[in-house]
Design a protein around this nucleic acid. Structure first.
Length: 586
RNA sequence: GACUUGGUAGCUCAGCUGGUAGAGCACAUCCCUUUUAAGGAUGGGGUCCUGGGUUCGAGCCCCAGCCAAGUCACCA
């Protein structure tokens, strides 16, 4: 028991006052014989949302409810109290009456347990009936309650009245690092992720209804491919081999088309070792789809149909508000070839220009180029600078320069182009698709061009995948392929300004851990310092042996006594000569 | 990677020309006892991001660093 108390006081040095109060409350609960973390289930027969929705229509309902959730607010006034209970669906008010919670003489369970030992953030289960208070609020009249989990840290308290939010918890860093807090106190965040899940469900339903097969392909790949990007590198010990986290699954899905499936798709986490921004996270989700005997024209129709359906499923209309704009996904979407789009936004027709003329035009348009850029790259640059951001309504851009698209089939009629399209929406690409290149000779030549780029130092150049080539040498039917950015689409569908808002745990730089934690205490204990004082010394700033060795013994002694008093520690004060001997022994 | 802005109590934020760290919420002890971002009284709570520098004196000024956000560049 003594050890326990010491442990506790050591721990409490690092705790804030509010955390210490909660740990003390926990102890009192245990002393009262109440288990703050019971093992048995608590049966729930209703949600807050259901009550709030249906009770106004029929006051005879919900006369025996059992519901559980987190306490988000309390208003205590002696023998009667109100609390707010938040479950996964909504918040509902609870009414507690002392003499009903404690019908007998002993009022402990109300006076002590409810009023003093419970806190905002604790999770409880209650049973009772629903009524309406004098203030007109739907409320559960609690007959009994049970502590399901004691919370040891204070929650950010966000309050709201008439749509006005007070003390909103909105610091992006804390919200992303401690997403659980964000989800607890900002319930609209929970809805964003529900919408994301429904969006994926809707897409999956659509694809399954077409009888395409949902598949899984390797994340760990010996040769990464299918996109232009730098990979994450890792190592497999048993195979003694370098492996890469996939940047795309394209080449594997095409192998499955070679294998005889007509349609395969995968919701794939891809990993790209590149910059981060509000549009880029190192890991992101892409849905890739490959359908045999189809081409990119057909795929455009499918994308329109699918995204329109998703929008209807999510919003009941084809219109979505995104920032300042209303985006309408109703079919058909606008279509431009890349040349047409450039002509539309700049007034210049560049389709027949050679590289020199084009470079000159780019300069006139204020688009920067350099000598390493070929004709295709310049076109892409002009488009990116002058057109993409202006495409707010969903628009297909078709027929890309061949240089940028080593896996796409050459255009059936326009030389120098490939059969490729991207859908642009809200100024950003949301998907990328082409008639897949199935000519193995051409594919090998395109890979070799990529190898040449790699030799010239392009870190994103593709690697030649010999097994993939072998597979399409066996023959891949004409195939349409699609990659659609799930995070990007989720941003639009949920009106989110950054990708971090549609990922539960966006990548962040690791948090710096406290230097006191995990210290090697051996040198301290070797000098004869009792364990309970080591943490206190470290708390006082003497985190290493060297620091303590340099210190003035009198000052250290005073600091320790000061801390002992301040933290109300239940250990005897050290003697000055003891402190002196510790320091001498260091 | 570059530039801009920010980092102060558990949360949201003030903090003057550099002069003993503040408010609201939360927390503790009371009062009130069907309230509702409850109200009232009292109280406790701080590594002012970190490390240097200037100064008699730094939350504030200077330098370096860490973390985040925004903008730009590359990528979806």
């Amino acid at each position: 028991m003594k050890v326990l108390i010491q442990l506790k006081s050591d721990m409490s040095l690092k705790l804030s006052e509010q955390e210490r109060f909660r740990r003390e409350a926990l102890k009192e609960l245990l002393d009262l014989g109440i288990d703050p973390y019971p093992a048995e289930k608590f049966d729930v027969n209703v949600t807050a949302k259901e009550i709030l929705k249906r009770f106004p229509e029929d006051n005879s309902l919900f006369q025996e409810v059992s519901i559980a959730g987190r306490i988000m607010g309390r208003r205590i006034m002696g023998s009667a109290s109100f609390a707010e209970l938040q479950d996964s669906t909504d918040r509902i008010q609870l009414y507690f009456n002392r003499d009903e919670i404690c019908p007998g003489e002993d009022k402990t369970f109300y006076n002590t347990v409810f009023k003093r030992l419970l806190d905002i953030g604790d999770i409880i289960g209650v049973k009772g009936h629903v009524f309406v208070t004098r203030m007109g609020e739907i409320t559960i009249h609690v007959k009994e309650y049970k502590i399901l989990c004691k919370s040891l840290r204070p929650l950010p308290v966000v309050k709201e009245k008439d749509g006005q939010v007070y003390d909103a918890f909105k610091d992006a860093e804390q919200r992303y690092r401690q997403r659980y807090l964000d989800l607890i106190v900002n319930p609209e965040i929970r809805d964003t992720f529900r919408q994301r899940a429904r969006m994926i469900q809707s897409m999956r339903d659509f694809l399954l209804s077409k009888d395409y097969l949902e598949v899984e392909t390797p994340v760990l790949q010996p040769i990464y491919g299918g996109a232009a990007a730098r990979p994450f590198k890792t190592f497999h010990n048993t195979l003694d081999t370098t492996l890469y986290l996939r940047i795309a699954n394209e080449l594997y899905l095409k192998r499955l088309i070679v294998g005889g499936y007509d349609g395969v798709f995968e919701f794939a986490k891809d990993f790209r070792n590149e910059g981060m921004s509000r549009f880029h996270n190192p890991e992101f989700t892409q849905m890739e789809l490959y359908v045999a005997y189809k081409d990119y024209e057909w795929m455009m129709e499918l994308v329109e149909e699918m995204v329109e359906k998703i929008t209807l499923d999510l919003h009941g209309t084809t219109e979505v508000k995104v920032g300042e704009n209303i985006i309408n996904f109703k079919r058909p979407w606008k279509r431009f070839t890349m040349y047409e789009a450039i002509e539309h936004f700049t007034g210049v027709n560049i389709s027949d220009m050679d590289e020199d003329q084009m470079r000159k035009t780019a300069k006139e348009l204020g688009v920067e180029t350099n000598t390493t850029m070929g004709r295709g790259k310049i076109i892409d640059e002009i488009f990116g600078e002058k057109c993409e951001a202006q495409l707010i309504q969903p628009t297909f851009i078709t027929d890309y320069p061949i240089e940028m698209s080593p896996l796409a089939k050459k255009h059936r009629s326009a030389p120098g182009l490939v059969e490729r399209f991207e859908a642009i929406c809200n100024g950003k690409e949301i998907c990328n698709s082409f008639s897949e290149l199935n000519d193995p000779i051409d594919q090998r030549a395109r890979f070799e061009e990529q190898l040449e780029l790699g030799r010239r130092g392009d870190p994103e150049a593709m690697i030649l995948d010999e097994d993939f080539l072998r597979s399409i040498e066996h023959g891949m039917p004409p195939t349409a392929g699609l990659g659609i950015g799930i995070d990007r689409l989720a941003m639009i569908m949920t009106n989110s300004n950054s990708i971090q808002d549609v990922l539960f745990f966006p990548q962040m730089r690791p948090e710096k851990t406290s230097s006191v934690e995990g210290q090697d205490n051996k040198e301290f204990s070797d000098a004869g310092i009792p364990g309970e004082w080591i943490t206190i010394l470290q708390h006082a700033g003497y985190t290493t042996a060297a620091l303590l060795k340099e210190a003035n013994p009198n000052k250290v002694f005073n600091q320790l006594c000061g801390l002992r008093k301040k933290q109300k520690l239940d250990i005897p004060a050290p003697k000055p000569e003891e402190v002196k001997s510790w320091i001498e022994n260091m």
